[in-house]
């Protein structure tokens, strides 16, 4: 049995077990009809995660590691191929359409791209009120009041109700996206790279805002980013993903102070630091391997400076290492 990636004392708000997400690369039903073989990509491969109520779990990884796909599988925006997602005791993966719609009131998402995530043909009021209308929660005056209230909570002026997305800056648009996610009063919000597309000074504003909203509304976040410094600041615990799997997880400070997985070490050393210094840079050879044709054994062995013969054949599992951290690396056994 794979040990739980995390072991919070109380039952977690969100619990993900063995989640897998496979895409067939070419062909739809027609190819199936003709019996063509399918090529599959395991975008997410057996991920275990849990998020306790009120905490922020940071999910970090480079592009193509499957972190966004994982988030969408958790919310069932993509149907996961295998595994189980439990939210507050409910098996999300087993829900029918109506029950799922009802649950969406409690699980929301903020997207990365503040330009693509807002419908350009809709006014701010229409965008933020959409969740209310979908769930039949408020109409007319009441809906507008709730929209205004939410706008003010995210730092938007209510005078902007009838404006269109193209009239806003990137940071303001991201606030609109946050308002849309929060208008239903959810418990759990996936923040999918919410600041990656923003300028540094605006990025700080949005990080600040998300922290404030979390405090005031008692939210739980799954915060996805490729930026280790951002994750370091916003998350209580973090999980590092590489090619579809979690390779290391644990309390943020513990992992950043003493990364155990060679990939986490390389990631940490690669971040350019304003203050200079930092650890000596670990150079990783080559690029991310294609998920279509993942390496045998440990998926990181093709780039790992510490790879051993065993890593080519045997896939390491996440192993708890005492201080609440776990890593999937053969080296941690002897360490």
């Amino acid at each position: 049995m794979t040990p739980a990636a995390t072991a919070p004392s109380a039952a977690p708000l969100l619990d993900v077990r063995g989640l897998g997400m496979r895409f067939s690369v070419k062909g739809g039903p027609f190819d199936r009809l003709l019996g063509r073989p399918r090529r599959e990509v395991a975008a997410v491969d057996g991920v275990d995660l849990s998020v306790a109520a009120g905490e922020t779990l940071g999910l970090i990884g480079e592009s193509g590691c499957g972190k966004s796909t994982l988030a969408r599988a958790i919310l069932r925006l993509h149907e996961p191929t295998v595994g189980k997602v439990t939210f507050d005791g409910t098996d999300v993966t087993a829900l029918g359409r109506d029950e799922l719609t009802a649950l969406r009131r409690r699980m929301q998402i903020v997207f990365q791209d503040p330009y693509a995530s807002l419908n350009p043909r809709k006014s701010v009021e229409q965008i933020i009120a959409l969740p209310l209308r979908v769930h039949g929660l408020a109409k007319g005056r009441a809906a507008r009041d709730r929209v205004v209230e939410t706008m003010e909570a995210v730092g938007l002026r209510s005078a902007w109700l009838s404006r269109y997305p193209h009239q806003f800056s990137g940071g303001q648009r991201q606030r609109i996206g946050i308002a849309r996610a929060l208008v239903l009063n959810p418990d759990f919000v996936v923040c999918d790279e919410p600041v990656s597309a923003l300028d540094v000074s605006v990025q700080a504003q949005i990080i600040d805002l998300l922290a404030k909203l979390k405090r005031e509304l008692g939210l739980t976040y799954l915060f996805i980013s490729h930026d280790l410094a951002v994750i370091g600041h916003v998350s209580d615990r973090l999980a590092v993903m590489y090619l579809g799997s979690v390779v290391e997880t644990g309390p943020t400070r513990a992992v950043l102070a003493r990364p155990r997985h060679p990939y986490t070490q390389a990631l940490l050393s690669a971040v350019p630091r304003v203050e200079g210094g930092g650890a000596a840079r670990i150079r990783l050879a080559g690029d991310l391997p294609s998920p279509l044709d993942p390496p045998s054994g440990c998926r990181f062995h093709t780039r790992c400076p510490l790879a051993m013969p065993r890593c080519k054949t045997e896939r390491p599992v996440l192993r708890p290492l005492g201080d609440g951290t776990s890593a999937a690396c053969h080296l941690t056994e002897t360490a």
Binding site: V200, S201, V202, Q203, A204, Q205, I207, D208, D227, L228, A229, V230, G232, H233, T252, R253, L256, L268, V271, R273, V274, E275, G277, G278
Partner: peptide, 16 residues
């Protein structure tokens, strides 16, 4: 001041 720094996770991020 608005950059999150890895070397000091306690330093607040101060947006402009």
């Amino acid at each position: 001041g608005s950059i999150p720094r890895l070397s000091d996770l306690d330093a607040p991020i101060r947006p402009i």
